[in-house]
Design a protein around this nucleic acid. Structure first.
Lengths: 217, 217
DNA sequence: GCTATATCGATATCCTAATATCGATATAGC
DNA sequence: GCTATATCGATATTAGGATATCGATATAGC
């Protein structure tokens, strides 16, 4: 375990996790790569290779122990040690993410939010504190926050990102529809809804429906 | 133009669009692949190849005409002919997307929303009508809606998707953290926040910071 | 008008990821 | 306890995308 893994494989791991957690939490449930692959619409060999990177093996004839697998994947992804995060920009999307209580399952804990509008500061309906953005650097450094979530308009995304980096953030999750740049050592992950829309729109504009099977992206 | 394009290239097109639109809307602005690539953190040849798929060419020494390029990309992606969509699930995320007025720039128009909770039906604060889910099939068929956006809890995602497909939807945009399956001919695009979180979490759990440059994903 | 050069576009190469093939192994069933 | 087989894991092959190389071309500057 903790071997090499491709970016694609890494991003498939939560899929396995989601499926495995939906199974009855019996200690002796075993599942084969074949079952997993057909349930998730993936290739069987691909599943086996992905799992090989995180677990120390399944058993012939029965497959992988589901409970073990969950533990291995969560451990591999670092979901066991919770990551604290801050969110910047409390518009509609920001508030939606603040209120979403599903993140804790992924080891993500949003501890506070920031906004440049003093009128928005205070306690959010989610119960979380919204501070003025001028307080960010100090708070992040004191609390050793490592993840910053950007939900501001495109125009201010780079500016906000720079402050986050200055505050010691090591991973940025960007929801703004803008390209931003970060120094080496800081990870930038764009949540690219525009890219998704491009795929949808292109598919629909191709009036001739190509009846292929690999239609999930 | 309208040649072959890879899925990755397709998803990069909105990036170019966003950058080009930020330029002054002068008719005679030209931009080279070199400038574009360094501004967006991409490879120069990659940019040239991507643009070759949508436009009918740049000029040596000066590059591509920005205004032409915008037109070509939007045309290629089908952003000019607006796509009507419906949204299912009016929780926090659903409401956030309903209120987001940036979609129209991508040719997406959410015409109505649906929820299984009769208490949530009526006019949303965004001004859009929320109907009971039982009305969905009829409305989608009458209005020839082709895009369905799923923002319901994971447990009901597949059920909702099935209704959408039955209603004639041809492209599904799934925000639920669940694997769902669609018949051939229908495109499924997962907006996979769990996958993004996996990348972030893994990066942070690797305590030894690999100081590589390709840190944007 | 001429030349030097920035830039494009096509072809070729490399690299990563997905898929196929085949032997190994432990379990289920008798 | 024995055998047949479902499944795993390793190696090899294929496919796709990203990158490099090189010649072509039209423009900018003189």
């Amino acid at each position: 375990m903790s071997k090499e893994i491709s970016l694609q494989a890494l991003q498939r791991l939560p899929l396995y996790l989601q499926y495995l957690k939906a199974l009855p939490a019996d200690k002796d449930i075993y599942i084969s790569a074949k079952v997993l692959s057909s349930a998730l619409g993936l290739g069987e060999i691909q599943v086996r290779k992905d799992l090989a990177a995180v677990s120390d093996g399944g058993k012939p004839k029965v497959g992988y122990c589901a409970a073990e697998l969950i533990k291995d994947i969560e451990n591999f992804l670092g979901y066991d040690n919770v990551n604290d995060a801050v969110l910047v920009g409390t518009g509609k999307l920001g508030k939606a993410l603040l209120s979403y209580d599903g993140f804790k399952a992924y080891g993500l804990n949003i501890v506070a939010a920031f906004d440049s509008d003093p009128g928005k500061c205070g306690i959010d309906e989610s119960g979380k504190q919204i501070f003025h953005i001028s307080k960010m650097e100090n708070l992040c450094e004191r609390m050793k926050i490592e993840i910053g979530i950007i939900t501001v308009p495109a125009a201010s995304a780079q500016e906000v990102c720079d402050i986050l980096v200055k505050s010691g953030i090591r991973a940025v999750w960007n929801f703004a529809p803008a390209h931003i740049s970060v120094p080496a050592g800081v990870l930038l992950k764009n949540e690219n809804m525009a890219a998704s829309l491009a795929v949808l729109s292109k598919h629909l504009s191709e009036k001739r429906v190509c009846e292929n099977n690999s239609n999930s992206i």
